[in-house]
Write a protein that binds this DNA or RNA. Structure first.
Lengths: 238, 238
DNA sequence: TCAAAAGTGTTGATGCTACACCCATGT
DNA sequence: ACATGGGTGTAGCATCAACACTTTTGA
């Protein structure tokens, strides 16, 4: 890497966040309405500029707290997605954006942060055309989350501290948009050491009906071996 | 995203490249020797600043061509790894670096590019302490490549246009550092439609000895279903 | 008594591992 | 002849999808 003054070019660096949650059986994403041009009045992913002494990770977690209004975001799942740097992606200036994906257990209605722009949880399916290249970022984030559910213990990030296996299954079914076999799902999850840990003696009614379900907590494992593959791949071996 | 002049802060944006190849049965990575401070005389990953109208992907491919000396890098595998943005990662100034991973079929000795710094292929195992946070980047890249071999048709990126299944197996064994069962490997690869395509009638001697092996080309598939899992995971079910 | 959801059992099919074995080539 | 690497066959084991079935609750 050369320290060439000619090649040096200042860029603005931002973070953009694709924040997902599950509510009422639907996958939802946090969007903010833009107040200024460009794209005034359109919806966009929340985000903002890096402060002088911040890493992108720090900035992303700060923005996550500001936009959701949550006081403690330290335990939430937040990971880098990728960086978007096309020269024309912001009409005002050269902006390089590091995109992040965040997963939330429940969906508290966001209180507007410091800025006046309103924020809302929008169903992923109806998240219309967004500002900038945020449609692409959102699609990439969704694809990544869906793929990661297969081989990472990620689904618990959508769940409250204690949850039933039915709720965990609903995470998979909502993100993938497919139904899963309940008995087999249960066995796969329990067969992965460290994925979930039982809460002794506790039980909860899920929908007001049916047998009370045992409660579990997220375990220490991060990898899912063997993977929990989503069904209905088109190219399956007959 | 607010267009707040107070929050705006100019950053330098660079790309860093972890370029891998396989030669003489060893995984090698392309390193450059630094000529200036900081870290003068130490080895580092190749990279450079983004030009004003370049995306990170464009800059990465340009740097790849410059550092390897190859005239045509359009067909080479190049993908974003992640972005490193810790405030102190470059002692001179605030630099945000978008890291990429590249895979090359063979290992032509690099002719030094425009800059005088010499470049060399170094065995991954002996790639000593590198400048900046490049040790971390290199380790992340290696981890990603190893993981991606399991479920993506990535191994052909290490091979020349026509290759034998033995050469393809050597890719896996070299990156993973484990031996694979030859007959089973063959079956798994051929059972994945579009992974490799036979070159009709062609054959080649691999090591001067043994039966000539059939030649294959890379196929159009990108996903590997079912995945080709690396053996000797510690946490296996008994 | 019924509906709904949790939880357990079982069975046939599939896939995979770990080999044994044959083939073609250079020395 | 033999070493070397390519290619085929197969037996046993593990896994898994698909379903039937029981249990526990609210209405």
């Amino acid at each position: 890497m050369e320290y060439d003054k000619h090649a040096y070019e200042p860029f603005a660096v931002t973070v953009d966040l694709a924040v997902f949650t599950i509510r009422a059986g639907a996958l939802r994403v946090l969007l903010v309405e833009r107040g200024q041009e460009p794209y005034a009045g359109q919806w966009a992913l929340p985000g903002g500029f890096l402060l002088p002494k911040e890493s992108a990770e720090t900035a992303a977690r700060r923005e996550l707290a500001e936009e959701t209004g949550l006081s403690d975001v330290s335990g939430l799942h937040l990971e880098q997605l990728r960086t978007y740097s096309d020269p024309g992606r912001d009409p005002r200036m050269r902006v390089v954006s590091v995109a992040f994906t965040a997963l939330l257990p429940d969906a508290p209605e966001p209180r507007g942060g410091s800025d006046a722009a309103q924020a809302r949880w929008v169903a992923y399916d109806t998240a219309g055309p967004l500002a900038f290249d945020h449609d692409r970022i959102l699609a990439d984030a969704h694809e990544r989350v869906g793929a990661k559910l297969e081989y990472r213990c990620l689904a618990t990030a959508f769940c409250p501290p204690e949850f039933t296996l039915g709720e965990l299954r609903e995470v998979y079914e909502t993100v993938w948009g497919t139904a899963l076999d309940r008995p087999n799902f249960r066995r796969k999850v329990l067969a992965t050491p460290g994925f979930v840990e039982p809460v002794p003696g506790a039980a909860r009614l899920t929908g007001g009906r049916g047998k009370p379900a045992a409660l579990y907590r997220a375990g220490p494992a991060t990898a899912l071996h063997p993977p929990l593959l989503r069904p209905s791949r088109e190219g399956r071996p007959a």
